[in-house]
Nucleic acid binder design. Structure first.
Lengths: 330, 330
DNA sequence: TCGCCTTGTGTGACCGGTCACATTCATGCC
DNA sequence: GGCATGAATGTGACCGGTCACACAAGGCGA
């Protein structure tokens, strides 16, 4: 213990915490001892005594899909900058008991919570978090659960889908079909809403959305179905992985993209620019979203941390090869 | 406190820890009180008093690339099953001081450490971990640092590269060019070794490996270079993202795959099966690798946890559309 | 010269648990 | 009946810090 090396015992604590009333000479001596002994204060003891943990646990159903992974990355960056520890708890199922158990574990870890509520498991988890725990939700749409005044962050999915749909309509397509990602709730997702809104404004027919999954396999299945319908000339996909599957299905069924059918994705995943054809998509700033989520939580946890305003970043349409004008009419 | 509700104070601890000598009636009473008050023992206090943390920190330079992300997923699965908490510390740079700081933070968190040493930052971090800390390394090759007897896990990259190269040679290609991922050290990577070994055994010429990066952009640049060389008929890439970039470059330069040039990747990323052409690659079980890493650490941390043998999973060649026989000779 | 305020430092309680030991009580044996 | 024995429970110290307060020394005005 630095006590022996230096002089006292509590004084060490004062030096470390930068307490003003320590004689400069004493401070010097203590600092020297700390340096020499390579002393580091025990984080566990600190947490127990002070109550502050400087830790954040992220609850999420997925860690690998582009959006999720980028959010995690953003949270980690910001957490590291604030000397916070980031733990991850994966929600393996949306089943009530499993979610409750995961939330319990996260609560036990102390510190703050960030829940990614893009799917039923995440939504349930967010609901299951006890009211007294500091938590920030990353949600699909701000039109969230009524009466819940917890802080949250989101991307403007509606606007993004709206832009992508208008882009396709602007190219001359009669209408745009939509392959949806699973919705976080039973309600219509923001992406679906934006797509529908654009169609309505243009007076275009509103086909039924095709239900997809999160990965390319779902897109592939949806693509095969849509390929059967010869009237389809434009497809918007709920994310780039779905779009990848759709592209593959169209290729296998001999439909050319964008010659016969245009395809647009969602999220601008890293590989989308390198596909053949490269994918038209809407870029969303998930990393920034993660950063905002942490900043918000940080503000809740420490009043010293000014609650940074979290500007909802504007989605950016990225036009590439996979979208073009529809084939000339017969 | 359950003390008041029940009877004693230490007895609660006994009940929770399943100590044998507690009268059944007392146990009942305490359990009832725990249930009623929703009592959960404080993880921080537990860690402080007992010294055991039930936490693992993973140090990694990346969280989003397929291999890294899958390893993290595997660790998390296993950690959750063992009621461990998983924290992630990202190594932002390979710079000495930055790495040291990251290791310090991880050490402060208590518990065990897993370091993904696939890159210079990771390798440095593994070296910087103090000897007394329980740590497992996920390394590129077992021919690691001499004199270091720490547990580690790895995939048989050499064998995987060997298989892929033999596959291409077996199709009739004169030789196989290689686009490398950055090596974790200055030494030749295991993948490069396996590739070279296959070439040698076949008596094929050994072209210089083309240096790539981790992402598709590097593959694209490498692909443009290789496309200039009309003698190139087969390209092995250090990972599937590089292969994606190569495919794109070949497409843009008008070379057909696999008609003129065959391409093979590495890792079998989720999207590789859906590319056009779908990608021949070598599947590696990164998730299993992550699970093994945790199991190994668990064994180090608690003698009760039997150190599961970690079979180095056999890489599996997945042949798809991107590889085929070379074009007929002139 | 006394009292008071300020500055610097030490002391004891506490955070919420675990651990080693002491204590109480019932039981079985000689 | 006395005593060793084991089961069931309580007590005090401790993990490594923080916090509130007590206390000693020095400077200054009255």
């Amino acid at each position: 213990m630095a006590t022996a090396a230096g002089v006292s015992y509590q004084t060490v604590s004062r030096v470390i915490n930068g307490h003003p009333s320590v004689k400069p000479s004493t401070r010097e001596r203590v600092l020297a001892a700390i340096e020499e002994l390579g002393f580091r204060r025990n984080a566990t003891a600190l947490a127990l005594a002070s109550g502050r943990t400087r830790a954040v646990t992220v609850l999420t159903a997925n860690t690998t899909h582009h959006g999720y992974a980028s959010i995690l990355q953003g949270i980690e960056e910001e957490a590291r900058a604030a000397s916070y520890t980031m733990a991850i708890g994966v929600l393996e199922s949306a089943e009530e008991a499993a979610v409750a158990a995961a939330v319990q574990r996260a609560a036990d870890a102390g510190g703050g919570l960030i829940v990614i509520a893009y799917d039923p498991a995440g939504v349930r988890a967010l609901e299951a978090v006890p009211a007294e725990l500091p938590v920030v939700g990353v949600v699909e749409t701000p039109a969230g659960r009524p009466g819940d005044d917890r802080p949250w962050v989101w991307t403007d999915d509606r606007e993004a889908a709206y832009q992508a749909t208008r882009h396709l309509l602007g190219l001359g397509h009669e209408t745009v079909h939509y392959v949806a990602i699973p919705s976080s709730t039973r309600r219509t997702s923001a992406r679906t809403t934006g797509w529908r809104q654009a169609l309505r404004e243009a007076g275009a027919p509103e086909p039924r959305p095709v239900q997809g999954s999160w990965g390319p396999a779902g897109g592939y299945a949806a693509g095969l179905r849509l390929a059967e319908d010869k009237s389809v000339t434009a497809i918007l996909c709920g994310n780039d992985d779905l779009a990848l599957g759709v592209l593959r299905a169209l290729h296998e069924t001999g439909r050319s993209v964008p010659g016969e059918i245009s395809v647009a994705g969602f999220d601008d995943a890293p590989h989308s620019a390198y596909l053949t054809p490269s994918l038209t998509t809407v870029r969303l700033d998930f990393t920034g979203l993660g950063r905002s989520a942490f900043a918000l939580l940080h503000g809740v946890l420490e009043e010293s941390a000014r609650i940074a305003p979290h500007p909802v970043s504007v989605p950016e349409l990225v036009v590439r090869e996979s979208s073009g004008p529809p084939p000339a009419r017969d």
